[in-house]
């Protein structure tokens, strides 16, 4: 009856049989809801984002929120040590998580965390990258495509100039950073498959 909870925004990776799905969901949402709200507040601060229609803002946030959260929390996945830190502050080794059934999505998160971490971004560079991640998310349901494209182009230009100003001799850094965008799309698709299987028992 115990339940495995793969997302590190949960207190820990296993919940006892005595706890109902509703109880598990409510404690998870105490972390998840503020984390999503933080992404929305972050998006409001992106120059030009609030000029999009309300519906387009919602659509972009719906398709981009998990990708932004994956960047925001990627340091919970320590690729070097092969551990994941859950909300209780404890780290769990890969061996334990494997036994619990965690597989390709976990491996992909480790790989992503390693690649992004190796770029050594400053906080403001990471924030600008997260803005690019959000506006580069899937555009199904977007009504004003041109406005989103212009927003994306402007943010990518800003990211390129910030990075080349900071590290003029590292011309490979910016392309490496943009290569993380398809990684995030893949992670998001894998994560969506898991979400489809997620149910809160009535």
């Amino acid at each position: 009856g115990a339940k495995v909870l793969a997302c590190p925004l949960n207190a820990c990776p296993v919940s006892g049989a005595e706890r109902t799905s509703q109880e598990i969901w409510e404690s998870f949402s105490q972390c998840f809801t503020p984390a999503v709200k933080e992404v929305v507040e972050f998006a409001k601060g992106i120059p030009g984002f609030q000029e999009l229609s309300q519906q387009d803002q919602v659509m972009l946030l719906k398709s981009g929120t998990f990708q932004v959260l994956m960047v925001r929390f990627c340091t919970l996945f320590n690729a070097k040590e092969r551990t994941v830190t859950f909300l209780n502050g404890q780290t769990y080794p890969l061996s334990t998580l494997r036994v619990l059934g965690m597989g390709s999505l976990l491996d992909a998160m480790f790989e992503f965390s390693e690649k992004l971490g190796s770029l050594g971004l400053e906080p403001d560079e990471m924030a600008l990258f997260m803005a690019v991640v959000l506006v580069s998310a899937d555009r199904s349901g977007i009504s004003d495509m041109q406005a989103v494209e212009q927003l994306q182009e402007g943010l990518i230009r800003a990211l390129r100039s910030l990075i080349s100003r900071r590290r003029p001799d590292d011309s490979a850094l910016f392309p490496k950073l943009l290569l993380r965008l398809p990684d995030l799309r893949t992670l998001n698709n894998m994560h969506s498959d898991k979400l489809l299987a997620f149910r809160i028992d009535p």
């Binding site: 949402s29 998840f32 809801t33 999503v36 709200k37 929305v40 507040e41 409001k44 309300q54 803002q57 919602v58 946030l61 719906k62 929120t65 998990f66 994560h191 969506s192 498959d193 979400l195 489809l196 997620f198 149910r199 809160i200």
Partner: peptide, 27 residues
Amino acid sequence: YNDPASNLGLEDIIRKALMGNLEERPD
């Protein structure tokens, strides 16, 4: 194509946060 994020009520959280009134408990 059903919406995976709907399992978590993501759109509801986003809409409320955009309108700035997430203070009251989600229903």
